[in-house]
Computed example of a mutant assay.
Amino acid sequence: MSTRTLISPAALGRTRGKVVYWGVFALVTVVFTLVFVGPLYWMAVNGLKSTEEFTRIPPTLVPHGAHTDNYRHAWKVMDLARLLRNTLWYAFGALAFQLVLDVAAAYSLSRLRPLFGKVILGMMLATLMIPAAVLVVPQYLTVLDVPVFRRNLLNTPWAIWLPSVTNAFNIFLLKRFFDSIPRELLDAAAIDGASPLRTLRSVVLPISRPILGVVSIFAVVGVWKDFLWPMLTLPDPSRQTLNVGIYSLAQGVPENWLTAALAMASLPTLAIFLIFQRNIMSGLTAGGLKG
């Protein structure tokens, strides 16, 4: 069966067709590369400029001199090491809770099939339609005075961890993957006497590494890039995350140091994507086909 494309094979076989095709392809690639990589380059080079060159108009595309001390001063003055430790603590704590609770929820909906399971899943997915800004006030009031327990969670890691525990999108991804696991594997485990929990631990999780990797990356990056919620719930400077801490200290440092700090804050998430980009793609497409 022939595949329909924008350009027919006959037109692509002609010299003019090849020139137009590759010319448009190169143009689109260059434009999108500049759109996405341009701000990162601008942030990195501005961190290398002197204060005088940073404020120059028109700005220079390439710094006249590489002032690498800007990064060292920003790291020390803004205490990025402490902010980085705080952010890592919050991010990997949220990751641990999500892996335990979201996997349990997705496995229950996929394989245990509880009563009203489809209704529960639909209600979870419906929460994705609610803008995040709408939930800020009720969530803040909840962590300010937790119902039943009557505890104030401000300036504690629980204020970051608890709202991120049940992620409807991650549960949907996990359930979609668990649905694609051949039923024969689970039946064989049941015949061998494995309980549902043992089946999850010994059969399902080992073959779910791609999707678990995707969920892990989403969990870490979600906490890492969040700004509004940590700013509201972590007013203590010693407990702030990287983004909030840089914003709090922005008024007291030169702008080139501030840009250098922002560049360093962006490096961990960029490194995670570059290292695990194949896992992200394979995990997102996993479970699309059964068999």
Results as ranks from 00 to 15, higher is better:
residue 169 F to G: 01
residue 66 A to Q: 04
residue 39 P to E: 11
residue 255 E to G: 03
residue 106 A to H: 00
residue 133 A to M: 06
residue 71 Y to H: 08
residue 173 L to T: 00
residue 115 L to Q: 09
residue 221 V to Q: 14
residue 250 A to Y: 04
residue 138 P to L: 05
residue 64 H to Q: 13
residue 166 T to E: 03
residue 207 I to A: 00
residue 8 S to C: 02
residue 265 A to F: 07
residue 238 S to I: 03
residue 41 Y to F: 12
residue 119 V to F: 08
residue 20 V to N: 08
residue 99 L to N: 00
residue 217 I to S: 10
residue 239 R to M: 13
residue 79 D to W: 00
residue 248 S to P: 03
residue 116 F to Q: 01
residue 29 T to L: 04
residue 194 A to Q: 15
residue 12 L to K: 11
residue 107 Y to D: 01
residue 238 S to R: 09
residue 257 W to L: 15
residue 181 I to A: 02
residue 155 N to E: 08
residue 58 P to T: 12
residue 23 G to Q: 07
residue 265 A to W: 05
residue 191 I to R: 03
residue 45 V to M: 09
residue 100 V to P: 01
residue 181 I to V: 10
residue 273 F to D: 06
residue 18 K to Q: 13
residue 205 L to R: 06
residue 148 V to G: 10
residue 80 L to G: 05
residue 14 R to V: 11
residue 242 L to K: 07
residue 179 D to E: 12
residue 266 S to C: 11
residue 78 M to L: 07
residue 113 R to E: 06
residue 209 R to D: 00
residue 273 F to R: 09
residue 144 L to F: 11
residue 53 E to W: 03
residue 24 V to F: 13
residue 26 A to W: 05
residue 22 W to R: 09
residue 14 R to M: 07
residue 10 A to M: 12
residue 150 R to M: 08
residue 143 V to L: 09
residue 70 N to V: 07
residue 27 L to K: 09
residue 36 F to I: 13
residue 74 A to T: 12
residue 55 T to S: 08
residue 184 E to I: 04
residue 134 V to W: 09
residue 117 G to L: 03
residue 25 F to L: 14
residue 63 P to C: 06
residue 251 Q to V: 06
residue 26 A to F: 04
residue 274 L to W: 09
residue 149 F to L: 15
residue 148 V to I: 15
residue 192 D to I: 10
residue 152 N to F: 05
residue 230 P to W: 14
residue 117 G to W: 00
residue 69 D to W: 03
residue 120 I to K: 13
residue 163 P to D: 12
residue 212 L to V: 00
residue 7 I to H: 01
residue 210 P to C: 01
residue 41 Y to L: 05
residue 171 I to W: 07
residue 85 R to Y: 04
residue 271 A to H: 05
residue 248 S to L: 11
residue 205 L to P: 02
residue 231 M to D: 10
residue 222 G to T: 01
residue 160 I to D: 14
residue 235 P to F: 12
residue 133 A to G: 10
residue 269 T to C: 11
residue 286 A to P: 00
residue 287 G to K: 03
residue 256 N to F: 03
residue 245 G to K: 06
residue 147 P to G: 09
residue 72 R to Q: 04
residue 102 D to P: 00
residue 259 T to Q: 12
residue 150 R to A: 08
residue 66 A to H: 11
residue 110 S to W: 00
residue 290 K to I: 03
residue 137 V to A: 13
residue 274 L to N: 06
residue 159 A to S: 15
residue 17 G to H: 02
